[in-house]
């Protein structure tokens, strides 16, 4: 009979080091391992996700927001949107929770290295993309030019505001913001949808990879823009959101076409999923 000691569904205990309020209903949780060690041994890559467990509330997939180049903590940026996240928001420093992972195929670092990068984020889509963004900043010489376009619906909803503001002082990242609406007239950057930012950037499709993360509607418009600019489909990467219940390709919830979002993704290039109608 077989060996049943390795169980991919067994969650491990971690504890909360700090909670950092972001915008309304969004919070950043810094986690540490129970043994106090660094997260080097966890082996996570930018773009991967974990399953977060709070007993009685269940499990939910949440993307990792911090890069492996900063192994002191593991950060997750959470929107309060359901039973589990409601309970998570009740927890503070020192509280215990359980996680499994890391899961999924993250951003293809080997493919991205040596290329110029265009990162396009919408809303909470910045959470997974931040793991790549910080990774690139930490290993800046391995990548070409870096452009970040970030769109939110209003000036009140900019995630990681202070971190993003600090990029204005750097000359190794071009940072373009947009907000859909600015009712109070306080926004000094672009007002309009994120695709409007493309007028402010010069892009060379041959040696640039585009990495997108945002709501489905954003994908449709940004994809159109990129294809019109001449980007080939396999140079456009997207992180998709699905109900990835088990995270390991068994429960079936995140299946789309011949792919499982949790194990084949959540990062896909457009050529891989173009034929799957329900993908985007």
């Amino acid at each position: 009979m077989g060996d049943y000691s390795t169980n991919m569904y067994s969650p491990r205990a971690v504890s909360i080091v700090r909670t950092l309020p972001q915008i309304s209903e969004h919070r950043l949780f810094q986690l540490k391992l129970e043994d106090g060690g660094t997260w080097d041994t966890f082996g996570h890559q930018p773009g991967q996700f974990i399953e977060v467990s709070l007993f009685g509330k269940g499990e939910a997939p949440i993307s990792i927001s911090s890069p492996p180049t900063r192994p002191d903590t593991l950060e997750i940026c959470v929107r309060r949107t359901g039973k589990l996240t409601d309970a998570l928001f009740e927890l503070g420093k020192g509280s215990r929770l359980h996680i499994r992972g890391p899961y999924g195929k993250g951003f293809p670092l080997d493919r991205l290295k040596g290329n110029n990068l265009l990162l396009v984020a919408g809303g909470l889509g910045l959470a997974p993309l931040r793991s790549l963004l910080l990774y690139v900043l930490d290993r800046r010489d391995e990548f070409g030019d870096l452009i970040l376009m970030y769109g939110t619906n209003s000036p009140d909803n900019v995630l990681f505001k202070y971190e993003l503001l600090s990029f204005f002082d750097r000359d190794d990242i071009k940072y373009l913001y947009s907000v859909d609406r600015d009712e109070e007239g306080i926004w000094k950057q672009y007002v309009g949808v994120v695709t409007g930012l493309f007028d402010q950037a010069t892009l060379s499709p041959d040696n640039t990879c585009a990495v997108l993360c945002g709501p489905p509607i954003m994908y449709r418009f940004v994809l159109e823009k990129l294809l019109n600019l001449g980007f080939s489909k396999d140079r456009i990467y997207m992180s998709l959101e699905r109900m990835m219940k088990c995270g390991v390709g068994k429960c079936g919830h995140c299946a789309m076409g011949d792919k499982y979002c949790c194990t084949d993704g959540p990062v896909f290039n457009y050529a891989e999923i173009e034929h799957i109608k329900e993908a985007i």
Binding site: T85, P216, R242
Partner: peptide, 11 residues
Amino acid sequence: FTKEASGHNPR
């Protein structure tokens, strides 16, 4: 079955 926490349902 496919409904996400955000309310979005891809199917």
